[in-house]
Amino acid sequence: MDVFLDEFFNAEVMLKYLPEIIDGFWVTLWLAFLVVVSGLTFGLGLALLRAYQNPVVNAAIILFVDLFRALPPLVIIIVGFFGLPFVGIRLSGFLISWLSLTCVLAAFTEEIYWAGITSVNKGQWEAARSTGLGFGGTLFFVVIPQAIRMTIPPLTNRTIAITKNTALASVVAVPEMLTVAQTSLAYAANTSPLTLAAAGYLLIFFPLTMLSRWIETRFAWKR
């Protein structure tokens, strides 16, 4: 037991590396925030674009979505960071991680938004159009409000699952929480800094996970 505590919960080691972990925490939080905002917006943009039913545009969207749903995020990040320099494109690890995760989140959420939009009964479209509402008006005032209710639970779940991948940025030298923890772990020869980092992730994601659980039961009752 003592070995266990000393190895994973060593107060002395924790205290020593806490300031650096906190620095990393802010980087993680900032990256996560950026990914959520840009990913959700980009995804919504794609879904709205798809609603216009232009065959060429839709084929491109579907290709994009399939690609980023099929590729592991770490592969995308590594290709971006270690591959692109060979053709003269050098982006920072932070930028690569942000862009990669944004595309992944956008791909997944586009599908969710789209499923929401198509789930709204065709009669709703016809009813709204029959009252003289235009395409945009029908979409924004009639269809989207109904679609939102259906999409919120999968949207929160997926957003959390993908945003957790900010930890992958450690592979491309972004000074986020896991990177800092791994460096500290190497210096200290002790796992406690990693415990701190894990606690940091819990601090961000545990409330969100519980929130998503609450949303799920909440919306299930109303059905």
Binding site: L178, Y201, F205, R213
Partner: peptide, 10 residues
């Protein structure tokens, strides 16, 4: 919820 909150890499 614990294991859904901790990134798998961590």
């Amino acid at each position: 919820d614990f294991f859904r909150s901790v990134p798998p890499l961590v």
